[in-house]
């Protein structure tokens, strides 16, 4: 088995449920199935892109994967090791190998601390380096993410959005992690700055042999960075496969609609691309539809879809679709 085939992270039938309401509220206590029956394997060195509409559970899943949320059901393995219910102290040594970058760097960085201090914090907590060694490492990290040495004394508000996200990234890679979960890392940035960060992430992945789980609602960005794509709908994966293949030939009607809805710059008069416009909204995960959860919006749904929930079946190695009538 080569290094690239070895799974670094694996989930089996992972589920995350939230209870909402109290026994005093009108509807009483209810359960939201935010993530439902997700089995996903992430291999060393690859980038798995998670896509789907807001509320599909992609961020919840990401937080479960780094155990920021407790897992309600199913199993989570990190390098073959079951970490589903490890306690916080048992997780601690793992934390340095599993990092996360958040969407809004101005919300995830403490505004009252200097950038150098913020990047040094994980080093102070997880390593026994002396302060001189820490300073040296921080300087290295600043260089690696394209910040200037004198930026260490700046406060987060003194940076531009792109630079702030670079600080967030430096902090995430400070401990040489193996896996980084990126939750919408470029969404809050200006368009002209997004490409810089996308390139930076690609460079770091190559240099540091990182594995990424990448979440973004901008599908063209996801395609650019990902080797594999998992499309989520109402808490479950409906399609999974190599990024370019899923984008070129989506097999699930939902992926087809999602990809066709992306506005692209066309120099020819409009109307050359076929667009599937979905009717209705994403149903509430409080009352998911029967059968296939996509059937109320699906253009090709038949009676069977209303009653029988399609399984995520592997049609070809690495190509899984949850639909009774996939276009493969």
């Amino acid at each position: 088995m080569t290094d690239t085939d070895r799974p670094i992270l694996e989930t089996r039938a992972l589920a995350k449920r939230f209870s909402i309401g109290t026994r005093f509220s009108a509807e009483g206590r209810r359960t939201v199935h935010a993530v439902d029956n997700v089995s996903l394997t992430v291999r060393h060195g690859e980038t798995v892109g998670l896509v789907g509409e807001s509320g599909c559970g992609k961020s919840t899943l990401a937080r479960c994967l780094v155990r920021l949320y407790d897992i309600s059901d199913g199993k989570l393995f990190f390098e073959g090791d079951d970490i589903t219910s490890k306690s916080l102290s048992e997780l601690r040594p793992l934390r340095r190998r599993l990092q996360m970058v958040f969407q809004d760097p101005s919300a995830s960085l403490n505004p009252r601390r200097r950038a150098g201090d913020l990047v040094a914090e994980p080093l102070r907590i997880h390593t026994k380096l002396s302060s001189a060694e820490i300073n040296k490492r921080v300087a290295e990290l600043f260089d690696l993410v394209g910040l200037l040495p004198d930026h260490v004394v700046r406060f987060p508000h003194e940076f531009s959005g792109g630079q702030r996200q670079r600080v967030g990234i430096a902090r995430a890679i400070a401990l040489n992690p193996d896996l980084v979960v990126l939750d919408e890392p470029v969404s809050a940035l200006d368009v002209s700055v997004q490409a810089q960060i996308v390139n930076l992430l690609a460079d770091l992945q190559e240099k540091l042999k990182l594995t990424y789980i990448f979440i973004a609602h901008d599908l063209s960005v996801v395609r650019q960075v990902s080797t594999r794509i998992a499309v989520m709908y109402l808490g479950s994966i409906v399609e999974e496969g190599p990024a370019e293949e899923v984008f070129a030939k989506p097999a699930h009607p939902y992926s087809q609609a999602l990809i066709s809805a992306v506005p692209v710059v066309e120099t020819t008069p409009s109307g050359t691309r076929k667009r599937i416009i979905l009717t209705g909204d994403v149903p509430s995960p409080l009352k998911p539809p029967s059968g296939c959860r996509f059937h109320p919006r699906c253009p090709i749904a038949v009676d069977r879809c209303r009653t029988e929930r399609p399984e995520l079946k592997e049609y070809r190695p690495g190509r899984r679709v949850a639909c009774h009538f996939p276009t493969l």
Binding site: S192, A195, S220, Q224
Partner: peptide, 28 residues
């Protein structure tokens, strides 16, 4: 040049993926 650079920095949705995106240096 700004319009050109902006159009160039958008990752394509079809076809070959560029290894690196032609990014605009700096920020607004």
């Amino acid at each position: 040049p700004y319009t050109r650079a902006l159009l160039g920095s958008i990752p394509p949705l079809t076809g070959e993926k560029p290894r690196r995106l032609p990014a605009i240096p700096g920020s607004p």
